[in-house]
């Protein structure tokens, strides 16, 4: 029922957008391909569109739909925005044989996934870029320093996928005087990895990796960490709700807005800027967990301080 409503809402928004944009004179045609028609993708697409329409109203002709609805035989866009992994993969595929495919901006994709599926040729020539969904390691460590100033040892549980993050994380940690304690979850042996990381870590930083952090393991990790009074820093609001002390993430709208800014610059310069992290982000605190750990944290203030640290 809910899904149907969302689909309806999305479709009606899309119709409205297309109708409105068609009236503009000499419009730039933009395809916005969604991985799915869930709220998160629609929100990101709407924010992107709103950002461009705010500064250049009526300049674009929008087509926002599920990736499967686009067909290059009927029309050809000037620009393509892919929202999510599936959309990026399929839009790349769609124009794979073109000698000069339309530039593609991928938003709401995790960095590692983007790098794995991105066509290196297109990346090099600047016809492919992205606004990632995840957060730079520097920002995560800055947040830990702000929220938990006495902490110096940060624990990480990494699996097959997330261990590719390690070089960047270790570099960011080192430059901020953090010790990083890494436990590898090999073949799903979470138990012993948790044992080794929780013995010395003062905070646990969660990295998205379906082999390590998923709805099955979250309960174990959160309970074990809380038992040892080790707070968990999560990467989504769901973690804060479940019992993480705090989480750092960008909402679909924040990623979408950043995507809009990038696309605007691309329209002006006629070329895509390099892939980047989302500029806006949200800090969430679980007040009950903070309270129980004897901490008083203000999520608004932490967000502000973190922003100031990045853009003084």
């Amino acid at each position: 029922m809910w899904f149907r409503f969302i689909t309806f809402l999305a479709t009606s928004c899309l119709c409205h957008m297309t109708y409105e944009s068609a009236r503009a004179a000499g419009p730039v045609s933009v395809w916005v391909a969604l991985s799915e028609t869930d709220t998160v993708y629609v929100e990101a697409a709407q924010a992107l569109r709103a950002e461009l329409e705010r500064t250049q109203p009526g300049n674009q002709e929008w087509r926002i739909a599920h990736w499967s609805r686009f067909d290059k035989s009927t029309s050809r866009p000037h620009w393509i925005v892919a929202v999510g992994t599936a959309a990026q993969r399929n839009m790349q595929e769609l124009f794979a044989r073109d000698t000069k495919p339309p530039p593609l901006l991928s938003i709401l994709v995790p960095r590692l996934t983007f790098e794995r599926i991105a066509d290196p040729e297109r990346l090099r020539e600047g016809s492919l870029s992205a606004v990632f969904l995840d957060q730079p390691a520097s920002r995560q460590f800055n947040l830990i320093r702000l929220a938990l100033p006495l902490v110096s040892t940060v624990g990480l549980l990494v699996g097959e996928t997330s261990k590719e993050h390690l070089p960047a994380i270790e570099k960011a940690a080192k430059s901020r005087d953090f010790d990083v304690l890494v436990a590898t979850v090999d073949q799903g042996e979470l138990f012993s990895a948790l044992q080794s990381v929780l013995s010395d870590a003062e905070v646990l930083l969660a990295l998205p990796d379906p082999g390590v952090f998923n709805s099955q393991t979250a309960a174990n990790i959160l309970t074990a960490a809380y038992r040892r009074h080790v707070p968990l820093v999560g990467f989504s609001p769901a973690y804060v709700k479940a019992g993480a002390l705090l989480a750092l993430y960008s909402t679909p709208a924040q990623v979408g807005t950043r995507g809009g800014e990038l696309l605007r610059r691309a329209l002006t310069n006629k070329s895509l800027p390099p892939p980047q992290w989302p500029g806006e982000f949200t800090v969430s605190v679980n007040p009950d967990v903070a309270h129980s750990l004897g901490l008083s944290l203000d999520e608004k203030m932490l967000g502000e301080q973190l922003r100031r640290r990045e853009r003084p």
Partner: peptide, 8 residues
Amino acid sequence: EVSEKDYF
């Protein structure tokens, strides 16, 4: 691989 689903 990690997808946006892990975040949402």
